[in-house]
């Protein structure tokens, strides 16, 4: 009985750790997507967004962009076989021209954007898995 209890406690203790590591994996894949951009002179911000979300659920972050900079957004996931989508909208909700899927891998996708004005933009994204109900994600960005 004590052994079962100990095993249960161990599993409970390990559960959040494994979950945390998986979210970190999503960020690692976003950084893998960023690497070719770094070689092109992009500066990667250390701050980023991440979490866990229902497969296919659209999410949006609002972010300040400055006209004159070129931005890249890198979306990574820790789940295999997903479809990743990113879109950038201006303050009025209209799509901004992006260079889509400039760096795509099985676990990440990227877009580049030259903001036409300085202001608040919305980054819309989703990760859809054929097999998982929930997916881990991380969205990072850089500029040059």
């Amino acid at each position: 009985m004590k052994r079962i209890l100990a095993m249960a406690l161990l599993c409970a203790a390990l559960l959040p750790l494994s979950s945390h590591a998986t979210v970190d994996d999503a960020h690692s894949f976003a950084m893998e997507a960023a690497q070719p951009f770094v070689n092109e002179g992009f500066i990667v911000r250390e701050d980023y967004w991440n979490g866990e979300v229902k497969s296919g659920q659209k999410l949006m972050v609002k972010h300040q962009l400055f006209k004159g900079n070129e931005y890249a957004f890198w979306l990574g996931t820790a789940n295999d076989g997903c479809t990743l989508e990113i879109q950038v909208l201006d303050e009025k909700g209209n799509p901004v021209q992006i260079t889509p899927k400039v760096g795509v891998g099985p676990m990440f996708t990227s877009v580049k954007v030259n903001p036409p004005k300085t202001g608040t933009y919305s980054i819309l994204f989703s990760i859809t898995s054929k097999t998982e109900k929930g997916v881990f994600w991380a969205l990072a960005y850089g500029y040059r």
């Binding site: 500066i43 911000r45 701050d47 980023y48 967004w49 979490g51 659920q57 659209k58 999410l59 949006m60 972050v61 609002k62 972010h63 300040q64 400055f66 006209k67 004159g68 900079n69 909208l89 909700g93 919305s122 819309l124 989703s126 960005y141 500029y143 040059r144």
Partner: peptide, 23 residues
């Protein structure tokens, strides 16, 4: 945002000054 059946991540990443300095 038009036709967006989703959720807003309620967090803001504040740009570092270098982002403006570079422009």
């Amino acid at each position: 945002a038009k036709n967006f059946p989703g959720y807003v991540v309620d967090d803001v990443v504040v740009p570092v000054p270098s982002e403006i300095f570079s422009v």
